[in-house]
Design a binder for these strands. Structure first.
Lengths: 215, 215, 215, 215
DNA sequence: CCCTAAGCGAGACGGTACGTCAGGTCTTCGG
DNA sequence: CCGAAGACCTGACGTACCGTCTCGCTTAGGG
């Protein structure tokens, strides 16, 4: 049996897998040192010990490269079970804020979003590589709260999805705005205040109902 | 009385005030046509019928120029009195979203915020020219609601300020995130849902109290 | 009788005569410090404590200004009577070489000549302000030699003029070439060798004649 | 035997040899059309169909480029054997004058010499690329005259070298001065008069000697 | 004794060229 | 076919001077 699928069998020298990792690592290092606007493909290539051609063979340009380089950082976000919905939300808010304080994330996130406003393929790449992947946190938090009995199950799937999207935009938006635009720290006090506001908003929508509220 | 203030008395040819307006207008036009990353100082100068040196004499670079060019657009935001706090909030959310749908704002806002993460003076410029100026809307909304009796007066000035900041980050953050990151439309339904969430959150914080809640 | 010729009578504030001197002096200083190619009108104006407009009111540009600034230096050349034609020639050769060693002359002379190859009015200005004025030295030398009996009088005025031009080109050309192109020093030995060559050449033209040769 | 010298073995794309020729040709064309002072690197690059960076990769600046561009023209000078020293000298004088009448040479030669007065490396480049190469004409002329018996052989090598330098400065200087400074034509009459003066000067130095003179 | 016209310092103005830098492509050699 | 190296074209950068143009102010001479 052949080692390679004949359809994908390639003749000639195969691509170095080590190069990919080195390039993404170099990209993050360059973001830290230089920031988005001063990062250059040449610098990344030099840091990675790789030729510029190798970069362009794998990524279309700076935007795509940076998206991939920072996307992995967002996957580090977790939702540790702290026992209550409020604690879980506050925990993820603090984690997210900490991620946005890292220099490579700070400088890259807004930049690629800005670029994506004029580049649909980039926008799709950001959504699939970063944004949509983190909605799992909202969904997971809801499931946990439902399992704990803090939340009822919503029967209307479409309403549930809309609700999750809204919550995601509110949480992510507020933290991003606080961190990058207002440039104020997200400390326990702010995270607590914000979490309270959010959960009361969700709860209040159903105070006239029996039982726990839905999302 | 002297015609010229000795402190501002200037020798030499005075700067053309017409040029300033032409340059800012040209900058917005270039943002619409080319977007942030393709906008060049040379193109702006050409559109404005002005020499590149004239731009650099007045602005340190592309970042500063664009901040000033879009800042004025944010000043167009108003808080029309719609009779209730909920209607006022929803109105301003829709207005803000409409502003962010304009191509010059879309492409510029995130870009300058991204740059500001590595440039303190730019961050200060953004805050003073754009962000802080719009907090007036939050303050004005609160005053109106207080006048209507929808809200109590908060005695603790510092808590009131913190509250206003939080509300501002939540509103602005959610709308920006929905519009630019999630790239979904802000329609009446979304604005309504978001407004409900926000006001219930604020209200819920005090359901055990007599009388209306405070901000 | 009017103090001013009505044709040249000027109303308004007269030009500052002090400015002219200051500008020419500043031009020479700038030539010394910066050299021809780095000299700028702005720098000259600043050194002279004068506005750029004042320069342009009096000279058409850098070329004309520099010609006037260095022309006066050439007028310092003299033909001290050393008792013999050979000594006189050698003396003026050394004097001329010394002038060409001065940094302001070195850098300016070839430059304006180069410019003059594409600018007839500049060429005329150089000729009238510098070149033709120094032909007096050749004519004076001939007269002295004739008075001493070292040379006969040439009856053919046109031949005499041609001869003076040739001698002028040979002397000036050789010294300039030695100094600026070959970049070798003009010392007593070289000046002596050159003078010998020149005078023998002139003398040889008439060795078959009775009496001294003519120019 | 290895195809490439390990010392000169180069990795990467080799420089285009065609570009060099195109650039020098374009430089001469630009000199003809625009003259030294209006020639720009950008114009040369455009004429050569080459990027500005390619020029700067090979030459430090306008001065160096122009020296190389005109140097080759000087190599066209020859010393055709016309049968006598006088005829040879007159021939080369006319040839040299014709070269200096060409617009690219007129405008460039004095300009680079002027620049060289403040730039030692440029001066060395001019000497090695232009000046010293043409001394061959003086040496060749002397050899021919010696072979014909018109001149004796000089035993003192150092005196011979000094003499050749003097003759070179006189010939080159006189022709340059006549052509570019006095801006008068070098016709047969002038060339004849100058040649006579020069050769009589050389001859006269030895009229008291038996046999032909030396240089 | 003012009036008027030009000169003046200052500095902004529209331009042109500079020399550099980054982007993205192409060409060579070697693995 | 991949990869390193580096030359290549393109186009923008931000700066330096150019020569011109307002400004407000000064400085004469002529009425």
């Amino acid at each position: 049996m052949s080692r390679t699928d004949p359809r994908t069998a390639r003749t000639g020298r195969p691509r170095s897998t080590a190069a990919d990792a080195a390039i993404l690592e170099a990209t993050r290092a360059s973001l830290v040192d230089l920031g988005w606007s001063k990062l250059t493909m040449g610098d990344v290539a030099a840091r990675a010990g790789v030729a510029k051609t190798t970069l362009y063979r794998r990524w279309a340009g700076k935007n795509e490269l940076v998206v991939d380089a920072v996307a992995v950082l967002f996957d580090e976000l977790e939702l540790p079970d702290r026992g209550s919905l409020a604690a879980d939300v506050q925990g993820v808010v603090l984690q997210f804020a900490a991620l946005l304080e890292r220099p490579e994330t700070r400088t890259a996130l807004m930049a690629v979003v800005a670029e994506s406003t004029r580049d649909d393929s980039l926008r799709r790449r950001i959504r699939s590589a970063i944004v949509d992947r983190q909605k799992r946190l909202v969904l997971l938090g809801r499931e946990r709260a439902q399992a704990r009995g803090e939340l009822r199950y919503e029967d209307d799937a479409s309403a549930a999805a809309r609700n999750a999207d809204l919550i995601f935009d509110v949480i992510a938006g507020a933290v991003v705005h606080r961190t990058l635009v207002s440039a104020e720290p997200v400390d326990d006090a702010w995270a607590g205040g914000f979490t309270t506001l959010l959960l009361l908003g969700l709860a209040g929508a159903q105070t006239d109902q029996a039982g726990p509220q839905t999302w």
